[in-house]
Write a protein that binds this DNA or RNA. Structure first.
Lengths: 249, 249
DNA sequence: TTGCTATTGTGTAAAAAATACACATTTTTG
DNA sequence: CAAAAATGTGTATTTTTTACACAATAGCAA
């Protein structure tokens, strides 16, 4: 057995009593139900949307809630979030990232439940909702209030998270089809950040990064001059993404 | 009862059965013990350090662990982390922020325990350790391996979190005394980011931000020309901190 | 008291990045 | 075939970042 990493000797005998029965210890811990809740973002008609259902709790009659579930025995939080997504959208390999835990003791009317929020990004067009019970639908983020539980808070936190993340990573592309025009990309950024961006500078920015692949194809069915369609070169991005040193606050 | 925020009507009768007994529902949920673990950072001798103790589990004999505890009934995670900090360092109002949850089903030898990691920043000089049981001590981050549980992973995640955060927010100042010299500040950044920075440009950066208050005092007990001591103007920072629009990846 | 050491404090020029801004081109639609 | 709507493109200006060197100050040792 190694004893590296420290000059300190073993603890003095008789001072600290080591606990042998780890299982007995844990069995006596107070326990809490844990859920995951997914803020599933989509982009449609130049609007950021969230996938919601009606709450099935009487206490939250007619209120919207996030898709979520209790975690199962020995299930990782990430896996539980994946499962929720698979069950509802039929999609695997969806972008999903943990945002944070919410633990307000009165957040659930049935007693204490801690939830871990996940943000998920997917292309609305590229999938079919599996089960459309409880009015499962895409809800515009703007017209969202009065949700069940603390889900409005959770949505707000995940939206802020998203605003920050799309500026630092090419996350936003998960919301678009595989092939997209620069206008679509700019609309996405403008909608999520709530700003107007200069078209020429926006294009310059993306071309300079040099992660866009010209597919040679053009938009179709647009009522105006069609734009070029690009793919994002995720592989090159993963190889070249810059590490990031700038003090700036 | 309001019915705003949506054009959709009530769910069709007989389709969805609303659950009235929320409490009964939650009572039947599987439950898991939840802990908080604090990665408490300090800065001493130009090194980033973490506050650790010896594990009191036989299974992790002689391994270092983070300070943590089981959360209590109806205790918020943030409050539990505050409590851990208060108990061990005697300090209230310490900088503490949730980083993320860790849920590996085998992370605890006694059975499943989910933990929520917090990063904490404090000035080592400005406090006394309350209880020094279990060899509570400040451990250099560099010489850290072979910890109990998944605590090395947690430390790594929190360290990355810290590296990112100090570049975007004036967090790092929580690691320094109230009054500090620019050299100390630069040492802090260099140690945490693991880079060398140009002194003139570093100073220029901070002076340009205009959040430093000249205290009029100078360093004492330094074996060379003493530097000026500054305070950080947190109030002005809170008023003026920029919101932040730059696509950059 | 003097000189040595270590570190503070300061400015400028060059390069890179961000911004502001306008017009010709292409396709669809009526 | 003209009008509408959007694409595609370049340059000049400003701002930010980077690279870089020397005089001034305090402690310390002789």
């Amino acid at each position: 057995m190694k004893n590296n990493g420290s000059k300190t000797e073993l603890p003095p005998e008789g001072k600290t009593v080591l606990i042998k029965d780890a299982k007995g210890l844990v069995d006596n811990y107070p326990k809490v139900p844990i859920t995951v809740d997914c803020v599933i973002f989509g982009f449609e008609e130049n609007e950021l949307k969230v996938l919601l259902i009606r709450s099935d709790l009487e206490a939250f009659r007619n209120k919207w809630t996030l898709l979520g579930d209790i975690i199962r025995d020995n299930e990782e939080l990430d896996d539980a979030a994946d499962r929720v997504l698979l069950e509802r959208t039929g999609m695997t390999d969806v972008f999903l990232e943990q945002v944070r835990a919410f633990s307000g003791p009165t957040r659930h009317p049935g007693g204490r439940v801690i939830t871990v929020a996940y943000a998920s990004l997917l292309d609305i067009g590229h999938h079919q909702l599996k089960i459309t019970d409880n009015e499962l639908h895409w809800h515009p983020l703007n017209s969202l209030k009065d949700m069940a539980f603390d889900h409005k808070q959770i949505v707000d936190a995940c939206y802020k998270w998203l605003q920050k993340m799309i500026q630092e990573h090419p996350l936003g592309l998960n919301l678009l089809p595989d092939k997209f025009s620069l206008r679509e990309l700019q609309n996405l950024y403008e909608a999520i950040l709530g700003v107007e961006l200069d078209r020429r500078n926006f294009r310059k920015k993306f071309f300079t990064m040099d992660f866009l692949i010209d597919t040679g194809e053009m938009e179709i069915d647009v009522p105006h001059r069609p734009g070029k369609l690009y793919k994002f070169n995720f592989k090159k991005y993963e190889r070249n993404k810059k590490k990031w040193f700038a003090i700036d606050f």
